[in-house]
């Protein structure tokens, strides 16, 4: 094999472009003149705004990625999915209870899951999406919360699901229920909140508020960093 090529050909909306081989899909699209108004956010793989589907030349596989993370490859056919058409059901988390049927009550369509695993294969976060949808069906809220912890709500699983399920909305409800009703309350946090309420830091804050910009800067530079 010869030298690595420094550019690759990608296809955006069917049109071919030569782009530097080192760019991410997002940078490559900007390089060829696209401007992102929607469909980009953190640019760091955290916000889930840049969901993208692609196929590579010579492969039947429809693959999924985050445009800000995935580096272009030669012969990629690219379509960005800036928004997955999906409705988040409305609920008042304070009125719900973590009952075994509550996820099915708000998202009954999860009962259509075929266990095809397509969602798992689409997830750019490598989550076990099928397993959390399955846990949702059997009312295991804690397991859904655990398995979906790193979900970005990018929407790719929902775009691929043949049963028309929107896994990430179900997972979000499960995590909310978990946090509110099932997770152990953090004692440190509770203690600190109480201290704040009791005015432990009022003096200190008052002092800081009275300082000049220069004094604040000096204080900041001299701060102690404990690891």
């Amino acid at each position: 094999m010869g030298e690595e090529r420094s550019t690759v050909t990608i296809y955006v909306m069917g049109k071919a472009y030569e782009v530097p081989a080192s760019l991410t899909i997002m940078k490559a699209m900007e390089y060829i003149g696209y401007r992102f108004v929607r469909g980009a956010g953190c640019r760091a793989g955290f916000c889930g705004a840049c969901a993208t589907l692609y196929r590579k030349k010579g492969s039947y596989k429809l693959e999924a990625a985050l445009a800000c993370q995935k580096v272009v490859e030669d012969g990629m056919y690219i379509a960005t999915i800036p928004f997955a058409p999906a409705e988040k059901r409305t609920y008042d988390i304070n009125k719900l209870r973590p009952t075994p049927n509550v996820l099915l009550e708000y998202y009954p369509e999860i009962a259509r899951c075929l266990s095809c695993n397509t969602c798992t294969k689409a997830c750019p976060q490598d989550l076990q999406v099928m397993d959390y949808v399955q846990a949702a069906i059997r009312g295991d809220i804690e397991e859904v919360a655990r398995l979906s912890f790193d979900c970005l709500s990018c929407g790719l699983c929902a775009m691929r699901c043949p049963a028309e399920i929107v896994p990430y909305n179900v997972a979000q409800l499960a995590r909310r229920l978990y946090a509110k009703y099932l997770a152990k309350t953090s004692e440190h946090l509770m203690r600190r909140l109480k201290e704040i309420e009791e005015g432990k830091f009022d003096e200190e804050l008052k002092r800081l508020k009275g300082l000049s910009r220069e004094e604040l800067k000096e204080l900041y530079d001299k701060r102690e960093i404990r690891v």
Binding site: C113, L114, S115, C116, M130, D131, Q134, I137, R138
Partner: peptide, 25 residues
């Protein structure tokens, strides 16, 4: 240790593949 819903009803159509995924898994 790890399992999914079996689908509850057996898929009767002769050409069905999709609905076998759950029980076979």
């Amino acid at each position: 240790p790890r399992w999914n819903c079996c689908g509850t009803v057996h898929a009767l159509a002769k050409d069905d593949v999709m609905h076998y995924l759950a029980p076979i898994r």
